[in-house]
Write a protein that binds this DNA or RNA. Sequence first.
RNA 1: GCGGGCGUGGUGGAAUGGUAGACACACCAGACUUAAAAUCUGUUGGGCGAAUGCCCGUGGGGGUUCGAGUCCCCCCGCCCGCACCA
Length: 850
Amino acid sequence: MATYSPSDIEARWQAAWDKEDVFHAKRSGDKPKYYVLEMFPYPSGRIHMGHVRNYTMGDVIARYKMSTGHSVLHPMGWDAFGMPAENAAMAIGGHPKTWTYDNIADMRGQMKPLGLSIDWSREFATCDPEYYGQQQALFLDMLAAGLVYRKNAQVNWDPVDMTVLANEQVIDGKGWRSGAEVEKRELTQWFFKISDMAGELKSALDGLENWPAKVRLMQENWIGESRGIDIPFVRTDGAGTIHCYSTRPDTMRGASFIAVSPDHPVAKALEADNPDLAAFIAECRKMDTTEAAMEKAEKKGVDTGLRVRHPVYADQELPVWIGNFVLMDYGTGAVFGCPAHDQRDLDFARKYDLPVQNAFYMPGEEVEVGDEALVPAKTEKVAFIDHFAGVSDVTSQEAIDATIDYFEANDLGKGQMQYRLRDWGLSRQRYWGCPIPVVHCDDCGVVPEKKENLPIELPFDEDGTPIDFNIPGNPLDRHPTWRDVPCPSCGKAAKRETDTMDTFVDSSWYFARFTAPRADTPTVAEDAAYWMNVDQYIGGIEHAILHLLYSRFFARAMQITGHLPAGAIEPFDALFTQGMVTHEIYQTRDDNNRPVYHLPEDVTDGKLADGTAVEIIPSAKMSKSKKNVVDPLGIIASYGADTARWFVLSDSPPERDVEWTASGAEATFKHLNRVHSISERIAAMDEGATGTGDDDLLRAMHKAIHDVTLGVESFGFNAAIAKLYGFTATLHKSKAGQAAQREAIMTLAQLMAPMTPHLSEDIWAKHGGQSLVTTAPWPKANDKMLVSDTATLPIQINGKRRGELTLPADMDKAEVEKLALATDAVQKALNGGTPKKVIVVPGRIINVVV
RNA sequence: GCGGGCGUGGUGGAAUGGUAGACACACCAGACUUAAAAUCUGUUGGGCGAAUGCCCGUGGGGGUUCGAGUCCCCCCGCCCGCACCA
């Protein structure tokens, strides 16, 4: 008997799939389509177990859908722009392009042995000019449609590296690379008008039933809808109004000051003539904007000397302060402060000795405000003091609504939906990204490139201009032959935009590009109409907000600009967020008691090779620094891809983390060996050999078909695998005849095929299966074989199990009850009496209440 | 602070309100072997018992129900997301 040799089997069947071109996605008139997509990888150069788990899950779905008669699109590409390539160029020399494409080649080579059902003919990288050229075309169309605009915005500026940093690249107020104090700087940047769609993006979440509730909720909170009112306060100096936004206008009576953002036009206007204000504003700009720092930062302010009139109590004047806690880009950039009913305002008022005036009190509360503001919940009843809207003794929410009505009716303010979501700033002062296709001309201003000039390719070194990544700043700024171009409109000397696009732009539409990856337009109508939307998207929860929200925005923008068919509003019909692959950490201590980490392969039975015992730290995300990584290539080399695929799916539900253990991987390998040897044994059986229990085996087989199908369809891969273990054991122990065993092993091969396609092909071929198991139709469970003639029902007495009864499955309830009452256990419990109640749930349980 | 989730054997985890602990790991025992490995067979929530069995058991406390890991209320612990959002 041949032994199980994954390296032979896997190479052979991968070649067979390639030869038949079975994974080539084709539009088909008579088959339903299915588009399954895993979040594409960044080409770091190495695949890790997380990739293996992610792509295996997608592969299971893709292969299953293929065998259930779908025309499947299952593509793969590379999210290839971004800082790591530039950092590598700085650290080790060379060019980001070379580094990236070398990594892609490496990773493709590592991925192929996994035997994924990917249509590699559609592969692209976002740094291919063919891809980002179409992205530039898309950008120009969005610009024309008013979905992109330029404005001044504050950014984190690293003065040493001379570049903008994302918030997460600022650590303790310093640049993560340079260590320099990060400054706030105002730059003119490009923005996508995503905030215009905030309401739509939020309400449409309700329709995404096949998204995890958690992700929908996270997006909902991120978009952050609140209903409030915009109230103009008239300045006493006659210079117009200052608009304040409030969601609690019911506290208006208690207003004792207004506070504007340091970036508010009013503040800026005063800055020039008032050195104290200017100093304060400058200090605010330097302030660290990270969340933690913001939380700790002291609420500070300066009185501008300006006064405004209370919109209702016209005899009251309120001072105008500049407050460091007021955000310019939320609401109107100005708020009114009501210390009695808002803790932050109260703290501010106490600090600067501003009046505290109640607007209402809550029943049972002291009217006098101490150190704690009176903040009623919106459903809480409040009693008003002299309230202008003419309501009293109502809930806070009713008071808010009445106040907004009153303000609108008297032309004092305007109700408004306010969203937390800001516009998406896409400009990056970086080289390795998609160039923004516009030109700046002294005469014509900002001029879009002509589409026939696309792609605007990044300059490489071909024209002799060296691109040096070791000088801080953006190399594009220093590249005259690229930067200096004639204006596309007037032809005069002009300068190209040297900012590139945020890499999140690249990943916001790649799913659509996969439907026509070689087209000379961003998409092709027929292909997009056929393949979109993505039926199943799979990836990590870490993209719950940014990537998934941006993609939803792009799907809408592409529809507006005619690049996606009407109706394809949502990019991803179903989303699945998979858990991570984790591993124990092995640690010893050095002479200074600092931790030293050890690779799993260097640890045997909790000891290093020299016998030193290691401390075992419980499972954590695989990370190079903690050395708790397992290299997929090593696993494939020792056990084969099928073992790696099976194991990452087997132990935990897909949405949870799975712990990689050496013993688990080995057990999987043993199991696959067992399946292989069962197959060999059956193949060696005498033709026509008969045995007992054929029916039992076939019944178990149909049950397995039913259960595994259900498991695969519901992302219960671990449960499906548990059923496969069970069925394998049944087959292993079965005394059935040759025909039944042969049918069972072939069905087992089919049911395993989505997870272990190579071994399945081998078994399928061994037993004379037609063509490939990959293309064979999925087995169907015979309903008649799923029900057995008898059923064993547990008998409970007062809810406690006291016995069981095996009865014909179709026996009627009255008869079951009679037999149950006659059992010894029940008779004993009744002790001559009659039961109070008897519950018979057919096929489930009998409960006797005595 | 706000929002969400989770808590089940030694471990990972199963259980449409209906036999809690499927399946796997680990452990233990047995078969085979001169021996080991591999393979195969079996045991394994805790307690009591010679035994048919009995009692306890899903973080803690209460409730609904014939019946609760599952539903409701309170509490404890852990995890995640958001947060100067007016």
